[in-house]
Design a protein around this nucleic acid. Structure first.
Lengths: 209, 209
DNA sequence: GCGTTGCGAAACTCAGCCGTATCGAAATCA
DNA sequence: TGATTTCGATACGGCTGAGTTTCGCAACGC
């Protein structure tokens, strides 16, 4: 593989350059198939090549194995940043959960979440990507909201932020997954947030804040 | 297939009876493989037969397809009934979460939970089994605990029981799955329960009950 | 034009699994 | 003993997919 020198001094390999379009098609096809419910283990290079309108060689030239490809494909999933940051903490939390709920109503998102939940056991690098791409950004957003509430006094000053995040997100996922009905009711976000804000214990005096 | 009449009047088929031992080995092998992280789609009849020390025919004679076998195998998973019912509601809830935490530390349980979470999208009958075997019994137990607390006044009388259950279970799963460290800290159950009991809002007067 | 590299398509070998069939041996009852 | 059914083992044909190779063509720099 000889390289050539461009006018800008950037080394570039000789010969026909690799097609960025093909690369995009491959990634796109991978995400499509995963989004249709194909698991990572059932995902075949041939099906990706066929869907992408690409030869298998074109895939193997870029990725040496399936996991690498899937990791790269997931990396292109833009986290649809759910930055509410609007009014009260309650409203922001409800908005956050509403985003999750909305996402969970899409088949594609559910399939990809399934991969995150289940295949992460066997593919640590996938788990890593998911944390970095999806979990962490949202954790950061919600953490900021909660911290703000602790400062303004809307929330307890000694609130355990990680725990609060887990309660909210976990409840949403749990209810989405195991609800008797397929669809979750529209007021789920409000109900989760309100129960979490109130807590389970009785309130000796209710100051209606 | 002729049948014969035993002395007790129970009809029984002629010829060599089916081996219950083989049946148990097959189910056992299936659970073993699933517990090792093999997904349902990757699970092959041949690997089960080999693991069980059994001919493929012996499997096909009993189950016509893989899903049936897996469903039956899951049905033998005894729900290790976590019936605390001891002292305060707080203690019972902590005990309940501790059971979940303990289970989640076993690789086998995690793999089987992954199947429940992920393959349930494609195999509704599996999802059904899981709800019936695992989710429902526990929901019943925790629901009873919460109801008791609502009666004794340890909990709010207007508590949304389903929501409370979702907050507790969901938080546990979320933290087990996405915690930075691989292992969850030992005091996780207490922290979850206490945050959930207190709620996020500040408490105007704290009666230390 | 020439050398080089990428392209899609097709063919190839190799492996694994499916579902069925066949075998001799074993277990059961009449 | 004989009829019947199951047992584990093995083999079979067929399919799918992995990963490689080959082919003719296209795209680039020189």
């Amino acid at each position: 593989m000889k390289t050539q020198q461009t006018a800008e001094g950037v080394a570039r390999p000789a010969g026909r350059p690799r097609s960025e379009k093909a690369e995009r098609s491959i990634i796109e096809a991978t995400l499509e198939l995963l989004g249709e419910g194909i698991g990572v283990s059932e995902l075949s290079i041939e099906s990706i090549a066929s869907r992408a309108g690409v030869g298998k060689t074109t895939i193997y030239r870029r990725w040496s194995n399936k996991e690498d490809l899937v990791v790269d494909a997931l990396a292109t999933l833009k986290p649809p940043i759910p930055l509410p940051q609007g009014g009260t903490v309650r409203d922001d939390l409800v908005t956050y959960l509403r985003v999750i709920q909305e996402e969970a109503s899409h088949h594609r998102t559910r399939c990809i979440m399934n991969i995150a939940m289940s295949d992460s056991e066997r593919h640590p690098r996938l788990a890593e990507r998911f944390r970095e791409l999806t979990v962490e950004p949202r954790r950061a957003v919600v953490t900021a909201v909660l911290r703000r509430g602790m400062e303004t006094g809307e929330l307890r000053a000694d609130l355990d932020v990680d725990m609060a995040l887990a309660l909210l997100s976990g409840a949403m996922i749990w209810l989405t997954k195991w609800s008797h009905t397929g669809d979750s009711p529209a007021d789920l976000p409000e109900r989760i947030v309100d129960e979490a804000l109130k807590g389970f214990r009785p309130r000796p005096s209710t100051p209606e804040l």
